[in-house]
């Protein structure tokens, strides 16, 4: 069981949260203008890094608020928790990779 720190409620068990996948994927500004390839990128393609990943979680059995998290997909360590809409914070690992 992972322990996550909800920005509103503090540390809670993983079972109180739901996963929302990759963060920072904006809805296309003009969906009708997208080519099939661009539309498929928006619908079906997400980053799948081995390492630090910016992802969304919702505290579904607590405050029911969404937030973003930087989590390492190998060690499962949480590097940062930050609000929806805020830019992705830099971490040592993401800087190293120049991502």
């Amino acid at each position: 069981m992972l322990l996550f720190t909800c920005p509103n409620c503090g540390p809670r068990d993983e079972t109180e949260f739901h996963y929302g996948g990759q963060a920072h994927v904006p809805y296309p500004e003009n969906p009708a203008d997208l080519s099939d390839v661009e539309w498929s990128r928006y619908l079906f393609y997400r980053e799948n890094p081995k390492g630090v990943f910016a992802e969304r979680w919702v505290h579904s059995t607590g405050c029911r608020q969404w937030f973003n998290m930087l989590r390492d997909t190998v060690s499962y360590d949480v590097h940062a928790v930050y609000p929806m809409g805020a830019p992705q914070p830099a971490t040592a690992t993401t800087q190293q990779k120049g991502a």
Binding site: M1, H18, T73
Partner: peptide
Amino acid sequence: DSYNGYGQRGSFH
């Protein structure tokens, strides 16, 4: 397990 992971392990629940 719901989250992305390359750790070859998941959560106990």
